[in-house]
Design a protein around this nucleic acid. Structure first.
Lengths: 122, 122
DNA sequence: GCATTTCGTTTACATCCGTAATCGATGATC
DNA sequence: GATCATCGATTACGGATGTAAACGAAATGC
């Protein structure tokens, strides 16, 4: 099962720190998203049934923690995008951003450093 | 309005060549996707109401063409992913794939060439 | 001209998703 | 102990999506 966009906001909170109570998750997300508490509760429940998070009892309430690592999620999303749009490879995506003039000098510098590093390590 | 995943398959056909008749689009997509003709018809209709494509009469049938350029779609999708997962920047995505050992030597070579090229042009 | 095929249009329907409100149980208060 | 607050679970509901069948008009074959 798939983590939806809204659910991923909740996951973000838990990837940032865990375990968290529902209340804490609400505090971290609701305002920024314009959500009611009830919305967060729903999302927590859906994530539970999807086995994307787990809940452990802590007295009267539950504490939630991610079961899916952020890197798995990031990887699935990124790979899916690359496969759908760029033949599964990274370079064409970089090329696209370059063509769209969406690369700042900083981006380019960072990429250069990164490539050098990778190339070095390999 | 948003082009959905299934709709983007139809768009792909049209981005590849256009204008195309519904029949041609069915030929290009249905088998690969395991779709019935009816499904393609529905998707064409939804794309029409979304103004993502246009239809021009050609005798008894219509010929369809994209109104949304592929680069616009690619850009929207990519930017959304980068914003959601990588702070809106390309380098962290490349870093992620590197960490996941998902970069082949060819990818790295290609990236290096690309960066050099960009760096040169700027 | 009538039956048949062919298109596009309309309708269908289950699921997912975003967004919440309500309900029921459990714990806290007076 | 009765009442109030809290928390998770259940129910709600409209819109988007995937997937398609049914319908109706127009063209084609005899």
């Amino acid at each position: 099962m798939q983590i939806s966009d809204a659910e991923s906001i909740v996951m973000d909170a838990l990837w940032g720190r865990s375990p968290l109570s529902a209340e804490e998750i609400v505090a971290l997300t609701a305002d920024a998203q314009g959500w009611q508490e009830a919305t967060v509760k729903t999302l927590l429940n859906r994530l539970l049934t999807k086995k994307a998070i787990a809940a452990e009892r802590d007295g009267r309430r539950y504490l939630y923690r991610p079961l899916v690592p952020r890197s798995d999620y990031v990887d699935a999303e990124s790979t899916s995008l690359l496969d759908r749009l760029f033949g599964g490879r990274v370079a064409p995506l970089v090329a696209h951003f370059s063509e769209q003039r969406k690369l700042t000098k900083k981006d380019i510098a960072e990429l250069k450093r990164l490539i050098a590093e990778i190339d070095d390590g390999e």
